[in-house]
Design a binder for these strands. Structure first.
Lengths: 135, 135
DNA sequence: TAATCAACCTACTCGATTAGTAGGAATATA
DNA sequence: TATATTCCTACTAATCGAGTAGGTTGATTA
């Protein structure tokens, strides 16, 4: 089973692409889709999520596209992934909308899952888009 | 998205249960299914995997069931999870049977995923069933 | 104003996976 | 032989992943 699907991975790659090709003006998704070899139509339904969460700026119409609204250092991988993936919980028990488990108090494994989740958050919170850009 | 499904989680809980109720003789799955609130029929198709990989001993017929064949310290969470889950790769690109990615050499994110994968393996390799048992 | 280019939105699809059920066969014990 | 157990295979219903499809709206420019 996978923790991160194409949604999160693609989103991340797009943000990195935007950072690497930043010229101040909007970059059309078509360009990035070509460059990254990702379906444009698929991207079109991933990007609005980031847009609505003020992660990137977007503009419709001719000359439109997307661009970053902060320096690459300010983009944490964790934020991009959780926005696009939803949760990044290692197990269903720790999902945001998980119904409360009866065995919670006596569960031998829950503390381990929690610790792993924290470790995961720390890991991806300590990596920024700037860290992932070509030097 | 989740990394670990019920298969891995149940398997782990069963092993812990076997460890906690170890008396030297075989423990029928029915007992554990009741104790853990897990479908017996479902467990019946998870356990043979562990059996075939010599992780536990099993016996059919009256008085049969399963039991551990080593001390709990020797059971690493990583081994139980990978056997039942298959891979535990954070992304498809790192799956065992992933077709080679063309962008591999230029991918900005792959090193990060690899590092995360190693961290994951370390984490679960450093936890044994003994660590998870009730003290 | 019209053409064009871009994001936006909604619906649909196809296959794989998850979390089981179901039913019986094989095996071992008393 | 009756009983208790694992073993094996097939089936299923729901969800999710990874798109495809087609049209709408918004902005620029000729």
């Amino acid at each position: 089973m996978k923790l991160v699907s194409t949604r999160g991975r693609y989103a991340l790659r797009v943000i990195i692409d935007l950072a690497e090709h930043d010229s101040g003006s909007y970059i059309p998704m078509k360009e990035i889709a070509m460059r990254q070899g990702i379906s444009l139509k698929y991207l079109e339904q991933i990007m609005p999520v980031l847009m609505k969460n003020k992660v990137i700026d977007g503009a419709s119409g001719k000359g439109g596209g997307y661009k970053l609204n902060r320096p690459p250092e300010d983009y944490k991988v964790w934020d991009i992934l959780t926005l696009t993936e939803g949760s990044l919980a290692p197990v269903a028990c720790l999902d945001c909308d998980a119904e409360k488990c009866e065995r919670e108090s006596e569960c031998r494994t829950l503390p381990m899952w929690k610790k792993y989740q924290e470790m995961t958050e720390d890991f991806f919170n300590n990596i920024s888009v700037a860290d992932l850009m070509k030097k």
